[in-house]
Design a protein around this nucleic acid. Structure first.
Lengths: 195, 195
DNA sequence: GTCTATAGGGCGATAGAC
DNA sequence: GTCTATCGCCCTATAGAC
């Protein structure tokens, strides 16, 4: 893990972020010290401060970049035309994106309370944008008669919680393949909004 | 908040637990100091150690007592005979119990990673017991032909995640009454398992 | 039962050498 | 770009007085 002294800006920067994300996700922001991060990266503590002004900003940048990547990836996704196709696209996208980034996902919803109020507001706004994409699909689908949606906000939150819960029990190489999970959850989601 | 010195074992013990639960839930176990807890209770730091051997045990006791209370309360609940009645009883019970104890609920699933491995195993076993109560209802309901259950374990986890998600957005006195929430979620749950 | 003082250690962040 | 030493502070847990 340790490296010799010298110039490694292109390596150290990303390495700090990867290590911090892993340690924060595993032990929690407050329980991880800058010294631990530095040791795992293989640099001295002082070197961390060449890449982040402080620990709080390190956490915030990880969370903001994750949320931005999530929103950008959804924007770039082929969604189809019908409400049914869009709902299926959202569920598949969500499961795929989140199953590939367990640490980032864990961070983004477990460490909200360790953000300063200003930083929290930023992340919360990004999260709300993402939720609204699903809510819009549900609302439009209902207006088109494709879905039965009693309360769009509640169903949005219920579906997102249901999907987010996958990370609690999913393990790579476990009993269920990713495809199987996608199939099962797609069916559950369809049932909750079928007319 | 501060109290005069003297004997208050009957008051201080519960007060420490209430304060610790509130602070742990709000800021996270690692971010809360014994000094903060003592100050909020109105005693010196040393007094805390008359009621708990250490900080870790304080956290563990809060979580274990919450899970035990949850399991006991479910045992004492009138569940009805049919699978449909039992499922409805579970959903109503879960929402009621959890909406009344937001701090304990938050703790019980956000602070798992701050438990020692031994303590974690205990809490995890209690949680699994609770999940199994729902899974049994689903499995028996399927065998009786009352439910369509593709994969009992997955649907159990999906439903519990959906219900647990209520605490993310629920606020006392918010847009939706408790009754309305119960009605909406009961309908969602019924839909996911209807034959 | 509670207080105060303290032991012993870790923390975030910075300064100055290389 | 990185290291090491260090400042000033806070931490958990305990000891001894009352």
């Amino acid at each position: 893990m340790a490296r010799k002294a010298g110039s490694h800006a292109d390596i150290t920067g990303p390495a700090i972020r990867e290590v911090a994300q892993r340690l924060f996700a595993h032990s929690g922001y407050a329980a991880v010290s800058m010294r631990q991060i530095a040791a795992e990266v293989g640099v001295g503590v002082g070197a961390l401060y060449l890449y982040t002004p402080d620990k709080q900003t390190l956490l915030f940048d990880l969370m903001r970049d994750h949320m931005s990547a999530l929103l950008d990836a959804w924007e770039a996704t082929d969604k189809g035309e019908t409400p049914e196709a869009q709902l299926q696209a959202f569920v598949s996208f969500h499961i795929d994106f989140h199953i590939d980034r367990p640490d980032a996902v864990f961070l983004a919803y477990m460490e909200l309370r360790n953000l300063t109020p200003e930083n929290f507001a930023v992340i919360e706004a990004l999260r709300r944008q993402y939720e609204d994409h699903l809510q819009d699909i549900l609302t439009l689908g209902q207006e088109a008669g494709a879905f039965h949606v009693e309360d769009a906000r509640v169903i949005t939150m219920a579906l997102i919680a249901m999907l987010a819960g996958i990370h609690v029990w999913y393990r790579d190489g476990g009993r269920l393949s990713r495809d199987r999970i996608q199939t099962l959850y797609l069916e559950l989601v369809r049932r909750t909004v079928s007319p």
